[in-house]
Design a protein around this nucleic acid. Structure first.
Lengths: 354, 354
DNA sequence: CTGAAAGCGCTTACAG
DNA sequence: CTGAAAGCGCTTACAG
């Protein structure tokens, strides 16, 4: 307390006075700029240490008119899914919060089904002069290439939603996919008996690339094997995401079986729910992902039993804030920030904060 | 975009130029200070409107050396429960974040089992000169009295953890107790059959005052009646919170019954779990509240099946930020901010963020 | 390699 | 009722 109040007074001026130099020189040392003799530099650094000097961020940003340019590279919201609306919302929220501190967020969107668009937008970012990047590295190889460019320009980058490990990102913010699949399996245990048949459904255009879904599936299966459950687990990959295709595939998948629970590994669970409803198939339990309007509608009606959600808005928000904290406040980030694995039911969805 | 860039330039200087007055006068109008003729005031206000002037918060806080004093009034962490550690953590987090913006948080703690200590600490706050208060209004009448003092001094206040409605607080941040009880009942439905016996356990020194627990119990019961469940529901209030007393009460409560599920309406669920474990009673399902170490330990072992948690850290954090946003940024708050109702299991607790 | 001075957009005495 | 001036703690040309 008393120590603090002493220290509050310390600013560049005081440092300059003690070092018998001008504040400009102090500023140079503070920012590691060239043009200071080793001797005075050492002296000033010693004083900074001793006084435990903390710069006044307010004054700093006010004085430097320089704006900080951040770039984001995420999928565009498409008709197929508006999932990416959520991260974008969080990004915009963060942007508004720090806009008055001189930060600008430049937004680049790509088409999830088109690698070319990813590459193109990534190039735009490289050509722009930005100070930090937030990206969803959906296409692994293309992302790695882009990252090389960032590294060579000294631009830090943050991954959200899915990770590319070992790529020296400032951090990864998103789900632990394996763990979320494991939890889904645990919930299944509450819904069906030990002997019931279970169906895993992956719905995505590019399942081979989507390590996403596959890692969730692994987690899901692991639970059953760890716990010596004797359920028969079937699986189906649906590569045509349009409803009619999902319907046809599901019809076939359920034929001649006695499936009691369906686990859909992503947000497309609403297509499956719609199919069940239209076909008047009841008595089946359904677990899926993401807090989307169409999913919640089925949750309310009881067609979907559990949704697992991982705070997509917060992912976007935290992504921007991590860059801001790093670049402006010089705060290091946690290398991996796994989002909580939230369980949404009919009874608590009203209170969920995405 | 282009509109924005035009507007970025607008500051007090520009307003003063247009109104043909000095910036000091503009400042007076901006802060609604006295000593400006109606005429010039109107003229300046019109220009502010027209230009959609947004003050630069950075400059504002830098120029005014005035520090903002916030006070908090919450229970002290006791040996009995360290629940209040969590909100305090959030409060400190917020404090650190805004400390460089000239905000100070003065902390006052009371003993949950001693109304007198609440009154005493509240009086200290009234005598200090603070600009805003965050409090846990555990003792209703005493809180109302305190609030009267705040109102007469024009000090805004925020409630956390439990609400006292109709008291003109800036906002309430905390759980919807009724809804969390209802959700607990819903989860029970997954754990036991329609005909199984259920026991509700309230553990607290002052159950009569604790509308808290009673509202959770109401929500819990409501679910069963709404869904025409035929379970027998028993209930016990335990007023001596020490373990030995809980043990004795539980022994009696389980006698001659065939209870299959226990719902403990607060964080003391660990006492019940401990009792079950020590007594080698198995086959009972247990639901309780709060992400405390001792609770998590039982969750891991499977003695507790579900914990419901409502982000106590975030409650503290948001409480301080709400006051800051209101007092510094002039942002109005949502009157009621219900926390999400999080479901914690053995499989997702690792990823939970309190 | 170093310093004097102006300025960021506000607020705050002080003088009139 | 109003204004000129100093200052908040930094950064940024510019000059030497």
């Amino acid at each position: 307390m008393d120590k603090d109040s002493e220290k509050e007074l310390v600013g560049v001026k005081e440092i300059a006075r003690r070092a018998k130099v001008s504040i400009a020189t102090v500023d140079r040392v503070l920012h590691n700029r060239s043009g200071v003799s080793e001797k005075t530099k050492a002296k000033i650094q010693a004083i900074i240490e001793e006084l435990d000097y903390k710069p006044n961020i307010l004054a700093r940003r006010l004085a430097s008119k320089k704006v900080l340019n951040l770039a984001i590279l995420i999928p565009a919201v498409s008709q197929e899914t508006d999932y990416w609306n959520a991260p974008l919302t969080g990004i915009i929220q963060a942007e508004e919060e720090i806009a008055s501190y001189g930060v600008k967020v430049n937004k680049y969107f790509f088409d999830q089904n088109d690698k070319g668009s990813f590459v193109q937008q990534a190039n735009f970012i490289v050509d722009s002069n930005c100070d930090g990047v937030l990206l969803a590295p959906m296409f692994i190889e293309e992302s790695k290439y882009f990252i090389q460019n960032c590294i060579s320009k000294g631009i830090p980058y943050v991954f959200i939603n899915s990770d590319v490990p070992e790529q020296n990102s400032l951090c990864y913010i998103g789900p632990n996919l394996y763990a979320s699949g494991y939890l889904a399996a645990h919930l299944s245990g509450f819904l069906v008996a030990d002997t019931d048949q279970i169906l895993i459904v992956n719905i995505s255009k590019e399942i081979d690339n989507h390590h996403h879904l596959l890692r969730k599936e692994e987690g899901f299966r692991e639970y059953f094997s760890v716990n010596n459950r004797s359920n028969d687990i079937f699986k189906i990959d649906i590569r045509q995401t349009a409803y009619e295709s999902v319907k046809a595939s599901m019809q076939k998948a359920l034929e001649n079986k006695n499936i009691k629970l369906i686990f859909v590994s992503n947000s497309r669970v609403s297509s499956v729910a719609r199919f069940l409803e239209e076909s008047h198939i009841t008595g089946l339990k359904v677990i899926g992902f993401d807090f989307l309007k169409e999913n919640i509608d089925f949750l309310k009606k009881g067609t979907i039993d559990f949704l697992i959600c991982q705070k997509p808005i917060e992912q976007g928000y935290k992504g921007i804030m991590t860059l801001y904290n790093y670049l402006v406040l010089s705060l290091e980030a946690e290398k991996v920030y796994y989002m909580p694995i939230d369980i949404i039911t009919k009874e608590n969805y009203l209170y969920y904060r995405n």
